[in-house]
Structure formats: structure tokens, C-alpha cells
């Protein structure tokens, strides 16, 4: 049967109304991006010694330099060591942090939309309406995906502006963002991360009790991102354009698998059976 888009959007509008009135969901979606886009760069640039402290950090820069791809090496070759440090931190070290935004946002929204609806025992009347499973699923995926990506792109925009403004003088009137890495990150990796999160929650929604449990389980997805952050911070690898491209491809394949499994596990009957 074909999917009637107006039914999916009906679900979308209903869920969005509910979600936007839930502070449990809205608060983290506002707070986390604020910290990442404004608080962190300000600390980096203005707090004395946070980034640039000759005695401690020069070593790290050179440690990085070993693993830095040639394209980036080129970019920093003309900079002094303060510029290079700020550049590496704000443009590369911070980048994987931004994957937390689509992960966190889609995780809280999808948990509320799928598991929350079940927990509040409203799903039965919804399942009794002449809306097909596919339409319902699509509506709920969209309501998890679109706001998450909106927040992600908005955060990226704010971060770009903040960083460019704050570093304008340091880099003698050159804007350091956006670049290819970031575009790939925000428009390639971020949606892939959001989809993986949503797919996971779709799959577990029939089996969890409610919002909290869905949140806790989807929390495991933070582990690969933390590994990414840590891996880069310790110089184990570097998120250059090539590495990111490979990552996006892997994520997309993973997404397809997660969705395939998620959809198999999403049985309307199971959701109802676990109701009582």
C-alpha cells in the first residue's frame, strides 16, 4: 500500500505539539547546543592557558602534527604555534562534539515519540485509527529527524559565526569556518547519526517500558562518539576529509542495517502486548 504523506504529517504535527510542550525533551535540546556553540569556544579562546600555554601544549601540537593529514598540515604550515593550536582545537578537535547534538536531540525526541507514547498509554487509540504502520512510522521518524537536524544545523551556524568572530583578529581577518570537513560532518555524518539513533529506538520501542528506558539504551550510542573525540585528542587518528568520508559511508551502511532490523522489530501488536 502506498504511504499517504498527509497522514504522516498529521502524526508529525501532533507529536511536535506534544514534544514542544515537554521540558524533559526541550531542555537538553537547547542546553547542549548552547554549551557547545558558545560556552566552549569562548573558554578556549579567552581563558588564559586553556589552549595556548607554550610550556604544556607545544608538545601536543607536535604530537598531533605526526598524524595530521597533509591537507591540514598545509593549512597550518603558515601559522604561528598559537594560531595552529586554536585552529586545530576549534576546527578539528571540537568537530566530533557536534555529533552529540543530532544524537542527543533525536534520542530524546524519538524516545518520547515512540516509547513515551506507549508509556502514556495513548498508543492504542492511535493504532485503532485508519493510519497504516508505515505512515505512523514515517511521521514519527520525521518528527525525530527534522527538529534534530534543524538544531544541528542551527548550532553549526552559530558556532561558525562565534568562532569566526572571536578569531577574526587572531587570524588577521581570515575566517577559519566553514570548511569541507565541517560540511561533511554536519550534512553527512550528523544525519547518519540521527538516523542510526532513531532506528535503534524504533527497534527497541516495542520492548522498553517507556521514555527513560529508551533513553538509557540509546545512550550507548554516545560511546563511539566519545571514542572518536578521545581518539582524536590522543592523536590516535585525525578526522580529516578522507577519514570523515569513510565514516559517513560506514554510517550509512549501518543506518540501512539498523532500519531494516528496527522495522522488523516494530510490530504494532508487540507494542500493545507490552502495554499492561
Amino acid at each position: 500500500m502506498e504511504i499517504r504523506l498527509e497522514k504522516a504529517f498529521l502524526i508529525f504535527r501532533k507529536d511536535w505539539k506534544e514534544i514542544s510542550r515537554n521540558w524533559q525533551v526541550i531542555l537538553p535540546i537547547i542546553a547542549v547546543p548552547l554549551v557547545l556553540t558558545i560556552v566552549l569556544p569562548v573558554i578556549m579562546i579567552y581563558l588564559p592557558g586553556a589552549v595556548y600555554n607554550q610550556g604544556v601544549y607545544t608538545g601536543d601540537v607536535t604530537e598531533f602534527i605526526k598524524n595530521i593529514p597533509s591537507e591540514v598540515r598545509m593549512q597550518i604550515s603558515m601559522m604561528d604555534s598559537r594560531q595552529a593550536m586554536i585552529y586545530i582545537v576549534l576546527v578539528y578537535l571540537f568537530a566530533p562534539f557536534f555529533l552529540i547534538i543530532p544524537l542527543m536531540a533525536s534520542s530524546v525526541i524519538a524516545s518520547d515519540s515512540f516509547a513515551g507514547e506507549k508509556e502514556r498509554k495513548t498508543i492504542e487509540a492511535l493504532l485503532a485509527t485508519p493510519i497504516s504502520d508505515d505512515e505512523l512510522l514515517l511521521g514519527k521518524i520525521l518528527v525525530s529527524f527534522i527538529p534534530s537536524m534543524t538544531v544541528t544545523i542551527l548550532s553549526f551556524t552559530v558556532y561558525t559565526i562565534v568562532v569566526d568572530l572571536l578569531t577574526y583578529d587572531i587570524f588577521n581577518g581570515k575566517y577559519i569556518l566553514p570548511n569541507t570537513t565541517w560540511l561533511l560532518l554536519i550534512f553527512g555524518a550528523a544525519p547518519a547519526v540521527a538516523f542510526a539513533t532513531i532506528g535503534l529506538i524504533v527497534g527497541i520501542s516495542a520492548r522498553v517500558k517507556g521514555f527513560r528506558e529508551a533513553q538509557e539504551i540509546s545512550g550507548v550510542l554516545i560511546i563511539p562518539i566519545v571514542m572518536l573525540i578521545a581518539g582524536q585528542a590522543t592523536g590516535a587518528f585525525f578526522l580529516g576529509t578522507n577519514t570523515l568520508l569513510i565514516m559517513v559511508v560506514v554510517l550509512v551502511i549501518l543506518d540501512i542495517m539498523i532500519f531494516y532490523i528496527g522495522k522488523m522489530l516494530f510490530e504494532r501488536e508487540k507494542i500493545l502486548v507490552r502495554l499492561d
Binding site: 501532533k14 505539539k17 506534544e18 515537554n22 495513548t122 498508543i123 492504542e124 487509540a125 492511535l126 485503532a128
Partner: peptide, 13 residues
């Protein structure tokens, strides 16, 4: 039309 055992209404709406 169905009146389910729980009222199944959206409390935030």
C-alpha cells in the same frame, strides 16, 4: 469507533 479501556488521550494537548 472505539472507546478503549484507558482513555488514550494526549494530556499535553
Amino acid at each position: 469507533g472505539i472507546l478503549t479501556e484507558n482513555p488514550c488521550l494526549y494530556e499535553r494537548l
